[in-house]
Each structure stands twice: as structure tokens, then as C-alpha cells.
């Protein structure tokens, strides 16, 4: 029978797949071989001391699978250093890089929280929209409070529209007063009035 039983542990391993020490993995992160860099990232996942090195490589990595391996490692590491190093990339013109950064930040709620108010107050409205995008999947009890602050104070219709969409899902009665003021605050933006009404309808229907 051509079905051949082979033990998985007997399969030959590529050199980069052998067990690495943390120091070896950090050194390998800067190496020329993409498979080696991916193995290094996998090895360093969860190692807070390696967050700096992972972020440094992430910033310059151009190989897509390697960038993904580093992103996953950073998501699994839960380090404040990661947030500090990656926040500037929310202003990046590289949409793929920026989206990956948003996804990493979404996975680090406790580490992102201390930065959120500053992000939502950023002078660049695009960065504020990306900050709301981070909130979309952020498991943090202050998400609604932050969103209410956005729809209460932000003057940019696109930022407010993004927040309204999310408030429709996560909002409670606490959001109603801020939502009620949208029509007056944005009298020239009928879409925002509609979106606020939609969010209130959803919140009001809650039992």
C-alpha cells in the first residue's frame, strides 16, 4: 500500500526550525532568510523582553508572511512597549501596514487604554478614525465612554459617523443624550442625523 506511515517527529527540520534561545531568535530576526525571521518571531511570541526587537523588525519588514508572523507574536506578547512603538504607524500612508497595526492594537486593550484619550484628540482626523476602528474590537469597559466623548465633542463628520456606527452596537442609555444632540450639532449633515437615530433605535430597543 502506498500509504506510508512516517512519524512526524522523524521529519527533517529546516535549520531555522530547531529550538532557538531568545537571544538567538532576536539575532535571527535581522537575518536575510524570511523563514528564519518567521521562526524567530514565533519563538519570541509572549516574551515581553523581545517586544522592542519585534517592533523594530516590524517597522522595516517587507515580506508579507514575515510581517504577519511578527504581528501575531506582538499580539500574543501583551507589552506596553508594543503600543508605544506602533502608535505612530496609525499615520502611515501604507494602508496594509496601518491595518495590521490597528489589528495588533485591538488585541492589546489594557496596553492601549492609557493612550486612547490622546489618540481620540489627535489633530489628524484620519488618526481619530483609526482610533475608533481600534475601539471596534477592543475588549475594554471604557469603550462606550470613549465613543460618547467622540460623538459629543469631535467636529469632523467622518469621525463622528464611525463612532455612531459602533455606538449602535455597544451603546446603552448613557449614550442617548449625546446622540440626541447630533442633529443640532451637525445640522448640515443629514446622514449623521440618520445614523444617530439608528443608533438610538437600537439602544432603545434593548431590554
Amino acid at each position: 500500500m502506498p500509504l506510508r506511515k512516517t512519524r512526524a517527529e522523524d521529519l527533517p527540520q529546516a535549520g531555522s526550525q530547531a529550538a532557538l534561545s531568545a537571544d538567538e531568535a532576536i539575532a535571527l530576526l535581522g537575518g536575510p532568510d524570511a523563514a528564519g525571521r518567521q521562526a524567530a518571531a514565533r519563538r519570541l511570541a509572549g516574551n515581553a523582553a523581545a517586544a522592542e526587537a519585534l517592533c523594530a523588525r516590524f517597522a522595516v519588514e517587507t515580506d508579507i508572511p514575515t510581517r504577519e508572523a511578527i504581528a501575531v507574536a506582538l499580539m500574543r506578547t501583551q507589552s506596553a512597549v508594543t503600543v508605544e512603538r506602533l502608535l505612530p504607524f496609525l499615520s502611515s500612508e501604507d494602508a496594509a501596514l496601518r491595518n495590521t497595526v490597528i489589528e495588533i492594537l485591538q488585541a492589546l486593550p489594557a496596553e492601549v487604554a492609557p493612550h486612547m484619550e490622546r489618540l481620540l484628540d489627535h489633530p489628524d482626523s484620519d488618526v481619530r478614525i483609526f482610533a475608533v476602528n481600534v475601539l471596534e474590537a477592543l475588549r475594554h469597559p471604557k469603550v462606550e465612554e470613549w465613543l460618547i466623548a467622540v460623538v459629543s465633542a469631535d467636529r469632523h463628520p467622518n469621525v463622528v459617523a464611525t463612532a455612531l456606527d459602533l455606538l449602535g452596537e455597544v451603546g446603552t442609555e448613557a449614550a442617548i443624550p449625546a446622540l440626541s444632540r447630533i442633529a443640532a450639532r451637525f445640522a448640515d449633515e443629514p446622514f449623521l442625523k440618520f445614523a444617530a437615530g439608528n443608533a438610538m433605535k437600537r439602544i432603545g430597543a434593548g431590554s
Binding site: E68, V72, M75
Partner: peptide, 13 residues
């Protein structure tokens, strides 16, 4: 979400 993405990356490898 994170584990799912890690699993995909491991399969890819």
C-alpha cells in the same frame, strides 16, 4: 481572534 490568527500563521509555515 489572536489565537485564530496565530494558528493560520502556523499552518502557513
Amino acid at each position: 481572534d489572536t489565537s485564530r490568527r496565530a494558528a493560520a500563521e502556523i499552518f502557513y509555515n
